[in-house]
Design a protein around this nucleic acid. Structure first.
Lengths: 246, 246
DNA sequence: ACCTGAACACCGTTCAAGT
DNA sequence: ACCTGAACACCGTTCAAGT
């Protein structure tokens, strides 16, 4: 009778039926971890732990860590909102998409780094590409120019976001520059010395790295839309007004 | 007499006096490993092994892996050659420096990734900055524009190099895009479908990602030098020739 | 001061074994 | 088919101990 102690009765509720694993759950859990701990805090083991399983279990749904990264990126890009059909000029709409893109990369620590090493090519990326190509063509770019412009603009936005969020994460980076700049001799590097204010202001317009970024977008858009072959307006960003020679 | 076996005589040459450790030796060894095995093959442990010591020994010379990365980057940038004083126009010289920069980042697997996460700020970076600022001012940029332009141009070059070398390393990335693009429905994404040729050609001009890159540099340079405030020539890349109104 | 081995707390990935 | 634990071959960094 007392051979074995009475069975311990444990409600199943204590450890509720785990939701079955799935790509989606894995990806969204990974994005949560990314948001909380940054890229360096993200690992398959941690994702697995958060899902109350072992790392090996994830390999049923993922080929490897790299694939998880790609899926995370595309999933996050779902949040890039497209402009309403006819809100403002093509240029305003183009910039608004690019800013939305930047904002998404910026909001999640480390997402931009993923974007740089991935070339997002999932469905959400395609949706963004389609929109950007359309807007560039609205601006007068031909097929080739639009394609190059798409690449240049997204690369730029991604690089901006990556540069700044890496610094946010590692901290040191910016300090290193600051000290390097503050200890410069005006004789050895006169121009750098003179420009050190402006050079530091780059990363200072905190929030979204904007202001300078807005200028840069205009610069690039102008170059893409106007450009080498003599066609279309080749005007400067805000208002140049004079030349629309053909 | 025969208590102990005769002392084994080993020439010191067999394991020659190790050269003393130093930052320089550590950095150059690390760069060798980077060149051979790429960024993913670089670790403090491997550097230590190559130097015939233990990883812990490196901490006398380095605060951490991050510092090693920064030192490696600046050391590699020593190879960026500056243009001879008066070879060609400021624009040609500017582009030649940027291309030299790109070439260096491109030659060593993984160096570009370091550059993105570091903001090179060692002596060699400063030398490059100084040169670029001078050339931009030669082109008519004011202080602020030159500083922004410096940042925009180096960021672009770094991003180009990083994007392509990551792909070279991970292989998968580009294939993923290729398959994604080839299976696109012309109904869902008509513009992407139409542009798929041009989109893929990006990364195809292998060697240095040039051609398209040359165009992009001109676009950016034009934007920086000409620009929002009405001054200077606001001309398109190759030859616009007409306006040098001031 | 410099170097070392061992330890700590992690990684991604594979594999045999369970259900 | 899906999940698991254990193992493999790695990491960066710290620390007590040696010279």
């Amino acid at each position: 009778m007392s051979e074995r102690p009475p069975r311990e009765i444990v409600s199943r509720r204590t450890r509720p039926a785990k939701p079955p694993l799935s790509r989606e759950i894995i990806v969204s859990t990974a994005l949560d971890i990314l948001a909380r701990d940054g890229l360096s805090g993200l690992s398959l083991r941690r994702v697995a732990t958060a899902l109350d399983t072992g790392a090996a279990s994830l390999y049923v749904y993922l080929a490897n860590l790299n694939e998880l990264h790609a899926l995370m990126l595309d999933s996050a890009l779902a949040a890039v909102s497209m402009p309403e059909a006819q809100n403002g000029s093509w240029r305003d709409r183009l910039k608004s998409v690019l800013k939305a893109y930047l904002r998404v990369l910026f909001e999640r620590q480390g997402l931009a780094q993923l974007a740089l090493s991935q070339i997002a090519s999932g469905p959400n990326s395609l949706r963004i590409w389609e929109t950007l190509l359309g807007l560039l063509k609205d601006g007068g770019a031909d097929d080739v120019k639009a394609a190059w412009g798409l690449d240049l603009l997204t690369l730029y936005v991604t690089a901006i976001a990556a540069e700044q969020s890496v610094r946010r994460a590692s901290g040191e980076g910016l300090d290193r520059v600051r000290t390097a700049l503050s200890s410069i001799s005006s004789e050895e590097f006169p121009l750098v010395f003179a420009a050190r204010q402006a050079l530091l202001s780059d990363s200072d317009d905190s929030q979204a790295g904007w202001g300078r970024g807005d200028w840069a977008l205009d610069v690039i858009i102008d170059g893409v839309v106007g450009g080498p072959n003599p066609s279309v307006t080749s005007s400067a960003p805000k208002k140049r007004g004079k030349g629309h020679k053909r």
